[in-house]
């Protein structure tokens, strides 16, 4: 196995250009599980945690190498809360937002926040740079538009981020759990509301009809909240698996979205 540990972004991009099929190693929290249990034996590994450009967090740009521990202490309450629910302190000190994007699990905890903001994912190769909206980048469960030779540089958030934001996650124990349902709700002063849910579809789900309906409600009545929850439940597309049932996830999606909305009203 060849290992490259670049110390600058240029060096990292040169490495990915030279080894377009290389395995990119960030925090290792997903990759090393594959090494241990799926016999992943990469020929070339590029470890990127020493790249300072990826550690940057400058206003609306969050570098791919920013760990969950840093996100936990950051300015965005919903993202901080999402980060806090990722694994244990041991996981959060290693795992990164770039890794969460690259793994593209439907349960990725930072993804609902990024999806609710329609954040862009910045990708670079030695030859080019491009920005894809989150739903252009994540193309399916554990599938992305990342091309060989490209690195995830970070996520770019829009300028307008409301203070009223909330995230919550359902699991069957009180910490250290993969989401059965996760949800992020953002609400702007003009009523515009964005909702994103994890673990209830092949990728993060944006229940557009629910968003549209509730965005016009400046002071939603109880009936409007019920309708909002009903629409959220109708728009998710969960499955049955060993963690939960589709029926429960559908139900809980509406309940959780409604509760979070009430918290930010």
């Amino acid at each position: 196995m060849e290992t490259l540990l670049p110390r600058h972004l240029d060096e990292a991009l040169a490495a990915t250009a030279a080894h377009p099929e290389a395995t990119i190693l960030a925090g290792g929290t997903d990759l090393m599980v594959a090494v241990a249990y799926q016999a992943l034996r990469p020929a070339v590994v590029i470890g990127i945690r020493r790249v300072p450009e990826l550690q940057e967090w400058d206003g609306r740009f969050i570098g791919a190498g920013v760990t969950y521990s840093r996100l936990e202490r950051g300015p965005f309450a919903a993202l901080a809360q999402a980060a806090r629910t990722v694994g244990s302190p041991q996981i959060r000190s290693a795992g990164t937002i770039g890794g969460n994007l690259g793994t593209a699990s439907p349960a990725g905890d930072s993804l609902p926040f990024l999806a609710a903001l329609d954040a862009e994912v910045l990708l670079r190769s030695q030859a080019a740079e491009r920005a894809l909206r989150w739903d252009e980048f994540i193309t399916g469960p554990k599938r992305t538009a990342l091309q060989p030779g490209e690195l995830i540089v970070g996520a770019r958030l829009p300028e307008a981020i409301p203070d009223r934001q909330a995230f919550a996650k359902i699991g069957t124990r009180t910490a250290m759990v993969i989401a059965i349902v996760s949800c992020c709700v953002l609400r702007w002063d003009d009523g515009t509301t964005r909702v994103a849910l994890g673990s209830v579809g092949p990728t993060t789900v944006r229940p557009r009809a629910a968003e549209t309906m509730i965005s016009t409600e400046r002071r939603p009545s109880s009936a409007a909240l019920d309708e909002f929850a009903r629409l959220v439940s109708a728009e998710v597309s969960p499955i049955n698996d060993h963690r939960s049932t589709a029926a429960y996830r559908r139900h809980a999606s509406g309940v959780l979205a409604r509760r979070l909305l009430e918290r930010v009203l």
Binding site: R84, A168, R173, T174
Partner: peptide, 8 residues
């Protein structure tokens, strides 16, 4: 509380 750190 139920839901713990998930803040549900």
């Amino acid at each position: 509380l139920p839901g713990g750190t998930g803040l549900t």
